[in-house]
């Protein structure tokens, strides 16, 4: 399956956020969108996820694909556990398998607690795990390592890589180190 976008443009009022973004990729690729804060990373991911429309250009391949997204905000159902949050987005969830997988990056007692009781780092890992464990063709991760310390980052990166399984992985990163963790081909968004 081929994916990509051509000459994507997006403006908010007078401010141009994306100006002629073009790339092509296929299932199994890993793409890292690198840009400083406010550089359009999240906007690009939202367009690829179909949540926003570009002012110019087009994206292809994403419309018919099953998407899984870890948003910049965790967007978890606060009253539910990490396992239930992951189960909710699956068609036929196996709660035991989800808990077993999540245990690789989250302590076991935290798996069944309401996520509102978890720390910021745990919530981030729960949000990333929810996206990674969902059945999908494309995995979009917006700053998956935000708020995670060194060891957590590495474990989370291993968790993602071990479960990519032929899916297209597109993620955003602030720093070069974060891009290297997932070994992604860099797509640089130059601020217009």
């Amino acid at each position: 399956m081929d994916y990509g976008c051509e000459n994507l443009q997006k403006r908010y009022g007078d401010r141009t956020v994306l100006d002629g973004v073009t790339f092509a990729c296929k299932a199994g690729d890993r793409i890292c969108i690198a840009a400083p804060s406010g550089g359009g990373k999240t906007t690009l991911l939202r367009i690829l996820a179909g949540l926003e429309y570009p002012d110019g250009g087009s994206a292809h391949g994403f419309g018919g694909a099953r998407l899984a997204v870890a948003f910049q905000e965790d967007r978890l159902c606060e009253h539910l556990s990490a396992v239930t949050n992951a189960a909710l987005v699956q068609a036929h969830p196996d709660r035991e398998a989800i808990a077993e997988a999540m245990h690789e990056i989250l302590p076991r007692p935290s798996l069944h607690q309401p996520v509102r009781e978890l720390s910021g780092g745990m919530r981030r890992r729960a949000a990333v795990a929810r996206a990674v464990l969902a059945e999908s063709d494309v995995l979009l991760l917006d700053e998956p390592f935000a708020g995670l310390d060194g060891e957590s980052r590495e474990r989370t990166a291993r968790f993602i890589l071990n479960r990519q399984r032929g899916r297209l992985l597109i993620f955003t990163a602030h720093a070069a180190g974060e891009a290297a963790l997932l070994d992604g081909a860099a797509l640089s968004l130059t601020t217009p």
Binding site: L51, A68, F71, E73, R75, C77, E78, L80, T84, V89
Partner: peptide
């Protein structure tokens, strides 16, 4: 609204939306 967007992206089932988003 952010959770509803999440539900849209993941194509969550209606009952899952009720449990996770609408009931609370």
């Amino acid at each position: 609204g952010q959770l509803l967007e999440m539900a849209q992206v993941f194509c969550m089932k209606p009952w899952s939306r009720v449990r996770g988003i609408y009931l609370p």
